[in-house]
Design a protein around this nucleic acid. Sequence first.
DNA 1: AATCGCTTGATTGTCGACAATGCAACTAAA
DNA 2: TTTAGTTGCATTGTCGACAATCAAGCGATT
Lengths: 257, 257
Amino acid sequence: MQLKSYLTNAIIWLKLPLLFNYVDNAMKNQHLPEPVTAADRVLLEIQRAIVEGEIAAGSKISEPELAKRFDLSRAPLREALARLERCHLIERTPNAGARVVKLSVAGLVSLYQLRETLEGMACRLAATQMTDEEIAEVQQLLDQHLSTQRVREGESYYQEAGDVDFHYRVIQGSKNPYLINILCDELYYLVRMYRVQMGMNGPRVSRAFDEHKAIINAIANRDGELAELLMRRHIGASRINIEKHLSIKGKDHGTST
Amino acid sequence: MQLKSYLTNAIIWLKLPLLFNYVDNAMKNQHLPEPVTAADRVLLEIQRAIVEGEIAAGSKISEPELAKRFDLSRAPLREALARLERCHLIERTPNAGARVVKLSVAGLVSLYQLRETLEGMACRLAATQMTDEEIAEVQQLLDQHLSTQRVREGESYYQEAGDVDFHYRVIQGSKNPYLINILCDELYYLVRMYRVQMGMNGPRVSRAFDEHKAIINAIANRDGELAELLMRRHIGASRINIEKHLSIKGKDHGTST
DNA sequence: AATCGCTTGATTGTCGACAATGCAACTAAA
DNA sequence: TTTAGTTGCATTGTCGACAATCAAGCGATT
């Protein structure tokens, strides 16, 4: 059991350079001034471990075990667990402990329903709230992502980073702090968990770029309604894509329901 | 200072019977199986204190002081603070402590923008997801609320309780766990804080009942689009109502910005 | 043989004390 | 008088140990 864990570790570490690149990117751009306290650091570690599947979905979380593993007390660890619960990566029941969330078709549908609505709203607001500079920056970023993606075909992490970055910018552009908090802090880690564990990299890459460009163009034209519609469609397509993979993999090793 | 606190306490205690009624009602109907651990209990206490204004908006939270006041250690208190941050009642900065959130026009607008979108979505989903029994129950509840409200004119807590109850039922009717979590656990305490501290009880009471009835009727007719539209309008009207009070009170004792 | 109750083990919840960090007042120099 | 530096204090972050609660295994009883 411990041995198996080490094996999983080894596999994960091979992926780490790419991961770090992604995390660095995220940290640089996004509002993560965090790694100042020990709880913050271990939070990032465990978040990554859960999203990557290093800590299996549905498995029980043992506080003493994790404390030993990261070599710190249970106090900051519990702080980290509280935040993990906040972004729906674990579920706690009083006096019974915490479990990593299970992936399911129903959960995916619920999550993406919400994303459609919320990111649609973000687009609508962004169309009136973003400055011309911010919009130009996003357009420039899209081209940049496209070129790096062409250089490194098949590197799904780059696509992932680019996609997250685009959505992040638009959400920030809404200038609504509560909306930003929900999407960037509470929902996105779970979204990434579905995408990473379902191995998303497929043929949607180039299509996604086109859709991104159409959305930012609508925002640039200050057409909020169109931007909202396009974003909802974009996320809907993404959901169907993942749903296909999930229903297949679900039959393989019972991660569904 | 301590004396003033006692005075405030005395005033608050006078309101408590009504409060308990409200809380009981909420606990009975809503998913609050909580008060099992000490942290849960103190969480409810502090939540109430903040929403009621017993702990002033914008004031600093001292962990040792609160620990002494509620006669428990800092460990469960920090757990409670973590959850308070989750529902946006306090804001924490690392190594600097927590402050109670400030009420502002900008914050109100952002919050109600989000409510419009999310509760609109809830209505749309509820129109297809609620069972006939659930719908009938809500309709029955509305009449019940109306009669108790007529008996006790001016008792704002009853109106508050009835309003919260109605919205709660519709949100639950969406059957989307993430949506339910955001609205009922993360946003509603802040919404109540705005309403309570702005002293909302005015002439909107009877109009609100009519609007509620129209919404549930649309849901009963399985007309999701109409239900969504009516709910958005309903919340928008409520926002304007509070906004008026807030801008007035804001000028009086500077709670704005 | 099956079920109920008890006991044991482990896990979570809570506590008090220590360490580290940040804030503020005070001093001294320009 | 103002500003920079320093010192002291208060608050937060972290730690290890204890208490309460839950789960499971064993034994006794019907």
